[in-house]
Simulated scan of single mutants.
Amino acid sequence: MSDTLASLRRKINGAGDLKSVVRSMKALAASSIGQYEKSVLALADYDRTVELGLAVCLRNREAAAEQAGRPGGGAKAVDAIVFGSDQGLVGQFNDVLADYVAKALNPLPGEKNVWAVGERVQSRLEDGGLPTVGLFAVPTSVNAIAPLVGQIVVESEAHHGEGEIVQLYLFHNRPNSGATYEPVSQRLLPLDESWAIRLSNLPWPTKNRPEVIDGGERTLQALVREYLFVSLFKACAESLAAENASRLAAMQRAEKNIDDLVGNLNQTFRRLRQTSIDEELFDVLSGYESLSKRKTH
């Protein structure tokens, strides 16, 4: 069925309204990216403070080696926390991450315990042969990240017995330049000797290094918990920034497609209008010629 001028005009107006929505979503995604990136930058000073505190506790390499285990030595289970997305218009965000997690975890020995942040990435993981033991809701703002991290820490600790050695991995998408992202991973536990030695060798900002007078072991445990908190918070914030970067890229593609569609519709509208004008002019000329012939006769 051929388009009429009225139907084409409705399509052009509808495309214009849709473009306004796309522009609003672009602005919201760009604003959200900045919000989450600022939260990661704001956490950098706190992260540095925690590392300096750990450096004081682990300044002796022998003490560090005694406190920390070997890489994966004695670990019976592999825990993984995967930060995904539950929002639409993010393309292959969850699929790329799920494939990356499967390739990283499948070769590792031991029982796999996977916690998913987001129902969509959970379904992708289970389709890839990685059943999950827990599910968390994706936070919708910076203020909701800290409570989520607390829930993850509590549930992961409750899943294992006291003193049990586990390997803990983080998986998430990290934003790149140009509204793109890439899947990355980080092993948080066990705290191996190289990790402890790196921290113990961090330079102290002043000449006078502090001493832990009492409760050195408790101080170390508290700093390790803060180290886990900072790592989880950063991974979650980067994942949310990457999600909005993916949405921004999708909106940019949608805006370009809408512009192309509007251009084609306008071209068709002008051509059809010109054809209609030509037909009307032809009818007028035909009528004039017919009337002229009648008057002559």
Results as ranks from 00 to 15, higher is better:
L5M: 03
L18I: 04
V22T: 07
K26T: 06
Q35F: 12
Y46N: 13
T49S: 13
A55D: 14
V56L: 14
E62D: 15
A63W: 15
A64G: 15
G74K: 15
D79A: 15
A80S: 15
D86P: 15
D95I: 09
V96S: 13
D99H: 13
A102N: 01
V114N: 00
E119L: 09
E119P: 10
Q122S: 08
L125Q: 05
D127L: 07
G128Y: 05
T132S: 12
L135Y: 11
L135S: 07
L135W: 07
F136H: 14
I145G: 05
V149P: 03
A158V: 06
E162S: 07
Q167D: 03
L170V: 02
R174P: 00
T180A: 12
P183K: 07
P190N: 00
L191Q: 02
I197L: 10
L199T: 00
L199N: 01
L202V: 03
W204S: 03
T206L: 12
K207D: 10
E211M: 07
G215L: 14
R218Y: 14
L223P: 01
V224W: 11
E226P: 08
F229S: 11
L232C: 03
L240G: 07
L240T: 05
N244W: 11
A249H: 11
D260I: 04
L265K: 10
Q267W: 06
D278R: 14
E280H: 04
V284D: 08
T296S: 04
